[in-house]
């Protein structure tokens, strides 16, 4: 069970004056059970990249294999792929349309051709997973707050029981608490159920605390691919791309430069705290 991108290139408006190369010869493998963060500044091709993963965009060149099958084969069931690789977009406003939250979450299972009973069960389970307040099940999705809309949108995709969950900037426009709630909920799901999750973001802080692998995109190419520790070691190069490593990386590096014997690997505040205490205890 894995998703392989093999030399994928994508050009917007191919063959016109507006041609833009959004992806440039990308080779990637998303393994089963991974929690991957895709990072890049605006226009680096990260959204385009993930939209290839469930066949919403067809690559100009290259192939994509899901479980060993080429998704561009003429007899491949692309609709089935979309239920296997669930995709949550940045703005929940783009997908909420039903009269109630519950019915909206049923939309995915309904398109899968499941019967009414199964739809209801799926929706109930999905809304439970995103910790949606039961009082809001029958509310109009348009009356919800930003964070709740996000939850409803994620539930709408989870109800299809995808094997891989892709989230495109799930925390954009949320306040810090809403952001921590959503990311905590996703991390929780990944831990308890072992789901494969791909999280797109432009915030290093968001990603550093949760993921176990980071892919850094710049100008349509993955420049770094590794654990947060490996990637943040390049914090100076990241800055040149208009990105920044988490603040703790800077603190640790400054401490080291000031002559303290600390290890700069820490990527979260908790790790940094432990490391600094260790250093001073000596």
């Amino acid at each position: 069970m894995s998703l392989i991108l093999d030399h994928v290139t994508y050009k917007y408006s191919s063959g016109t004056a507006y041609e833009i190369k959004a992806l440039d010869d990308v080779c990637l493998t998303i393994n089963d059970g991974e929690f991957v963060g895709v990072i890049g500044h605006t226009g680096s091709g990260k959204s385009t990249l993930v939209q290839h993963m469930n066949g919403l965009i067809k690559a100009t060149e290259g192939h994509i294999y899901y479980n060993g099958q080429d998704i561009y084969d003429s007899d491949y069931d692309i609709k089935d792929l979309r239920t296997q690789v669930g995709m949550v977009f940045q703005y929940p406003e783009h997908q909420l349309f039903e009269t109630t939250v519950f019915e909206d979450v049923c939309f995915g299972p309904k398109n899968q051709g499941l019967d009414k009973k199964e739809q209801t069960l799926r929706a109930y389970e999905a809304l439970g997973l995103v910790k949606m307040d039961e009082k809001l099940f029958l509310a109009s999705p348009f009356e919800l707050s930003g964070g709740q809309k996000r939850r409803a949108a994620i539930a709408g995709v989870l109800a299809m029981k995808p094997a891989i969950l892709i989230l495109d900037e799930p925390t954009a426009g949320l306040d810090p608490k809403g952001r921590d709630d959503i990311l905590g909920m996703i991390a929780d799901m990944h831990e308890k159920r072992g789901d494969t999750v791909v999280l797109v973001s432009h915030s290093m802080e968001d990603v550093a605390n949760y993921v176990d692998r980071i892919i850094v995109m710049d100008q349509g190419k993955p420049v770094y691919d590794g654990t947060p520790k490996e990637v943040f070691a390049h914090y100076k190069e990241l800055e040149k791309m208009g990105l920044a490593a988490p603040q703790v990386t800077y603190v640790m590096n400054d401490l080291k430069a000031a002559g303290f014997d600390v290890n700069c690997d820490a990527t979260t505040v908790a790790e940094a705290k432990k490391e600094i205490i260790r250093c001073f205890a000596k």
Binding site: R82, N111, G156
Partner: peptide, 8 residues
């Protein structure tokens, strides 16, 4: 795209 991703 968002609705196609949900099987529309």
């Amino acid at each position: 795209k968002a609705q196609t991703a949900r099987g529309a």
